[in-house]
């Protein structure tokens, strides 16, 4: 479902990680998503847009660079049109439960959990971010706020079967994340379930994660 994009029913752990990293990230830490709470009914809408089919050919850029001129280096959008529909979620609201781990091999002597936790909490609490986080793609900006430790968890708007209230709802296989360490960056999947509005995410290295 890449050419005509269709959204998953719920934000993927990998997208949630992206949101946290937009607020604070350093090579010394690795965010781990524990759970995603779904607060609103799952609704879809379709949007069709004109998009560009091509990418910037790096080789072309390289030759232009050598020549030192921009002659002929552009992309004519009319010759490269693709109309693509996207089936997107509307009106979403989530709570992300996560923690981070220190990546020993990339951590300096001053990288400790307390420091990074403070930075994240300070930024998220003030609405600061490295760049505005987004919900999947950049045109859908994400508003975020920090849930203080003593605040009650927001409850789902309605306790519907669709959100797995009363009976767990199977969401099928969902992208867990992309393994950036491995050769050719394979995608990893897990079997997603909504139980009482909450999607638990398996920990890295658990047997539930499938290649």
């Amino acid at each position: 479902m890449k050419v005509e994009r269709v959204s998953y029913d719920v934000m993927t752990p990998s997208a949630a990680r992206g949101i946290l990293e937009a607020i604070h990230w350093k090579p010394a830490i690795r965010w781990v998503i524990d759970a995603i709470h779904v607060l609103k009914p799952i609704r879809f809408q379709s949007i069709r847009r004109n998009e560009v089919g091509g990418k910037v050919p790096a080789t072309k850029a390289k030759t232009a660079m050598r020549r030192g001129s921009l002659e002929g280096l552009h992309l004519l959008v009319e010759e490269n049109r693709q109309q693509r529909a996207a089936t997107v979620l509307v009106d979403v609201s989530y709570v992300i439960e996560a923690h981070f781990e220190i990546v020993r091999e990339r951590a300096g002597s001053d990288d400790n959990e307390g420091k990074h936790l403070d930075i994240f909490n300070r930024r998220a609490g003030r609405g600061q971010c490295f760049h505005q986080p987004c919900l999947g793609t950049r045109e859908f900006d994400a508003s975020f706020s920090l849930l203080p430790p003593d605040a009650p968890l927001p409850q789902a708007e309605e306790e519907s079967a669709e959100l797995g209230f009363g009976h767990p709802r199977d969401l099928g296989f969902m992208l867990w994340d992309i393994d950036h360490q491995a050769e050719d960056r394979p995608s990893l999947f897990f079997r997603a379930r909504l139980v009482d509005g909450v999607m638990r995410v398996p920990a890295p290295g658990s047997a539930e994660i499938l290649r």
């Binding site: 660079m65 050598r66 921009l70 002659e71 992309l75 009319e78």
Partner: peptide, 26 residues
């Protein structure tokens, strides 16, 4: 200020694409 994603509608091909003074010589 060149534009990479061009629309043909404004093909003002004046090609005043001079060597960029800050050009990097790879």
């Amino acid at each position: 200020y060149a534009i990479y994603m061009q629309e043909k509608a404004i093909l003002n091909l004046q090609h005043q694409r001079a060597y960029d003074a800050l050009g990097i010589k790879p």
